[in-house]
């Protein structure tokens, strides 16, 4: 799980061009949206594509996203339980 969290942080930084943020700057429990990393709705779309492309997870229910994308902890747990790649 720790390796997955590390990988996820690296991918989020790369995909979302978070140039000034390092892996060490993102805590597992930090909020990804709002006050935490400050991501926005376009970033949410990028993360949905990331789950599909890299882990074979298709999100069909928008309500699910709100919970899944809360933090690195919630995202990695969801990926570990549902990944097909």
């Amino acid at each position: 799980m720790e390796a997955l969290k590390q990988e996820l942080k690296e991918k989020i930084i790369a995909v979302l061009n978070l140039e000034d943020i390092a892996v060490a700057d993102i805590n597992d429990t930090d909020a990804l949206f709002g006050d935490g990393l400050g991501l926005d709705s376009i970033d949410a779309l990028e993360l949905i594509v990331l789950l599909d492309k890299d882990y074979g997870i298709k999100l069909t229910d928008p309500k699910e996203g709100k919970h899944i994308f809360q933090s690195i902890d919630t995202m990695s747990s969801y990926i570990a339980a549902n990944r097909t790649k």
């Binding site: 995909v15 376009i42 779309l45 990028e46 594509v49 599909d52 492309k53």
Partner: peptide, 13 residues
């Protein structure tokens, strides 16, 4: 590269 799948919004916008 992605065979017309996984298109992200940022570069399109």
């Amino acid at each position: 590269d992605n065979n017309e799948e996984f298109l992200t919004p940022t570069s399109f916008i």
